[in-house]
Nucleic acid binder design. Sequence first.
RNA 1: GCGGAAGUAGCUCAAUUGGUAGAGCGAUAGCCUUCCAAGCUAUAGGUUGCGGGUUCGACCCUCGUCUUCCGCUCCA
Length: 487
Amino acid sequence: MSIQENKFQAIISHAKEYGFVFQSSEIYDGLSAVYDYGPYGSELKKNIRDHWWKSMTQLHENIVGVDAAIFMHPTTWKASGHVDNFSDPMIDNKDSKKRYRVDHLIEAHADKLIEGGKADEAKALLDAMEQLLGKDDYAGLKQLIEDNNVVCTISGTKNWTDIRQFNLMFDTKLGSVTDEADTIYLRPETAQGIFVNFLNVQKTARMKVPFGIAQTGKAFRNEIVARQFIFRMREFEQMEMQFFVRPGTEGEWYKYWKEARLKWHLELGIPQDKYRFHDHVKLAFYAKEACDIEFDFPMGFKEVEGIHSRTDHDLSQHQKFSKKKMNYFDNDVDEATGKPYGNYIPYVIETSIGLDRMFLLIMCSAYEEEKWAKEDGSEDSRVVLHIPAKLAPNKLAILPLLKKDGLPEIARELMNECKSQFKCFYEEKDAIGRRYRRQDAIGTPFCVTIDHQTKEDQTVTIRYRDSMAQERIHISKVKELVLNAIA
RNA sequence: GCGGAAGUAGCUCAAUUGGUAGAGCGAUAGCCUUCCAAGCUAUAGGUUGCGGGUUCGACCCUCGUCUUCCGCUCCA
């Protein structure tokens, strides 16, 4: 195992040990690829979400939010393409370990038959396949594969597993009487909740193109292999913003958001060399341009965020399936014609970031094991999370040096003054150094210590997490100092 | 999903060819302490992942199962 993988394991252990992330339902042996956030994890996650939300909606006058339901009308997913594109029967060859889509496998075999001059057999095979696929008869399909001696191109054997359905989407029943219930899906992406509300939002918030709609929320995907901790989960949270633009301007807006989103990451103080763009070469059929922002995780560069130029595909699809006009009337004057741009379906630039991946990014970026020599020559060490102050679960730890002589009372006063402004942590137990270490381990950027001198001149020691430096400041300056750091 | 490895206290690990589990750290409650972990005392915490089998007796042998890790496979 490499050093990098060891570091990843250490981060996962640390996340559990200090109440950031637990495996779901751990007392029942866990649920694969599902995780829970603990006390500090839920704070950090909320802080990341809030920071993103604020940077989108508060700092952009032309972006507003929605909070669409997880349940959506089933037709939504027909329109989006998720029903048809992500529910394929799959089969594995046990010898080569290669997995095939059943239809691809049989079609490839039919092609070979045609090459061999057996067009009739090929047609019969494909017809039989269509029939069985239509009935979802997997046993029949497997029989068909075996009867026709379909072999794996790699191993050359026909040692097949049973056919399994791969469904990207989870389904459930709406309605209390199951018999009469319709199948509905847990959304596999939040974006469609924005698209179906496009006109509601545009009209009620009186938005003019170009404008954006932001949303954070849970999404659900059945992953074939879901590993790597919270990087790939079955239940996860997205932070998406769909930006609606006039057709023809999508290129410049794509460029704008590509730069703006990277800037958002860098402003958190994370080094630029940990990031890179990955421009998609193979584009989805509806996309004009697409790229990922990748981060250098311990397991390599991986996607954190995607920026996609999606044309008018989604809105057009919803117009087609819902039979409701998705037009926007643009009153701005086109200089070329001297007339308003008029009616059109806007094009969309999407920015989509995984909240859980951003959480992992922060943890990986922040985690450090430090070692140094003390004055007496012995070795000292600590584990510290250099979480950006504005995202840290606790902002300030308030620590009376001794739990007597009136020091706790002064500390409590400071606590009461600060706790409505930002998250504080109070502790009077154990040696001061140990208390500092505990706060380092959960990423608290500031500790303040109240001692006897505080009683004389109202100064306290403020201790900085990253440098471990200490300085004395007046107790009345503490709140301001922290507020400035997290603004 | 396939193959390999592993599962003992919150964590890291012990337990002599099978004789019904211990330590350190951590936690909690005190004590002592005037500014960077590892001072003192006490307490809590384990049907040895779970379920069968062999045996007088299983943490140890065996089968199944679950979970995790590694490799492969899949991934709008």
